[in-house]
Amino acid sequence: MAHELKDVVAMSAEAFVPVMEQYGEDVWNYLYMLTRSRELADDLAQETFIRAYRHLHSYRGEAAVKTWLLRIARNRWYSYRRLAFVRRVTLTDRLPETNASDSAEEEFLRAELTSEVWRTVLELPVKYREILMLRAHYEMSMEELAEALGITVSAAKSRLQRARRKAAELWGEERSEA
Rank of each mutant, 00 (worst) to 15 (best):
Y32D: 01
V8K: 11
E107V: 09
S141Q: 04
A64V: 00
A84C: 10
T120H: 00
L69N: 03
E47C: 00
A148I: 01
G61M: 03
R51Y: 07
D26F: 01
A156G: 05
L160M: 07
S101F: 03
S103M: 08
D43Q: 10
M20N: 02
E139W: 05
W171I: 01
V65E: 14
A146L: 01
L91R: 11
G150T: 09
E144C: 00
L95T: 06
L69G: 05
Q22D: 11
E21Q: 13
Y53V: 04
A146V: 02
G24E: 01
V8Y: 11
A10S: 08
P18F: 13
V65N: 02
A73S: 08
V27K: 01
A10Q: 09
E147G: 01
R135I: 00
E177W: 01
V89M: 02
L109R: 14
R129Y: 15
S141N: 07
F16H: 05
G172E: 15
P125W: 11
R175I: 07
N99L: 14
S12C: 02
M11D: 01
E112C: 08
D43G: 04
V65M: 10
S103I: 00
R71D: 07
R129W: 05
W28Y: 14
R110E: 12
A15Q: 13
G150A: 12
Y78P: 00
T67L: 02
R119T: 05
L69W: 04
E144F: 00
Y138Q: 12
L5Q: 04
S79I: 02
A163L: 12
A10E: 13
F85N: 13
R135G: 00
L31M: 06
T120E: 03
N99F: 05
A100S: 12
V17L: 12
K6F: 08
N75T: 12
S58D: 14
S37A: 12
A10Y: 14
P125T: 06
R82G: 06
L160H: 13
V17F: 08
L91G: 02
T35R: 05
N75V: 03
E130N: 05
M1A: 10
H57L: 03
I131G: 06
R119H: 09
L124N: 04
E130M: 04
R159T: 10
D7F: 12
T120V: 09
E147K: 01
F85D: 15
A136I: 11
S79R: 11
E25H: 08
E143Y: 03
L5N: 06
S141D: 02
Q46H: 09
E39Q: 10
E116N: 11
W77K: 03
T98E: 11
K127Y: 12
R36Q: 14
V9F: 08
Q161N: 08
V8Q: 12
Q46A: 14
R88E: 15
E177D: 10
G24A: 07
T120A: 14
A167R: 15
E14H: 06
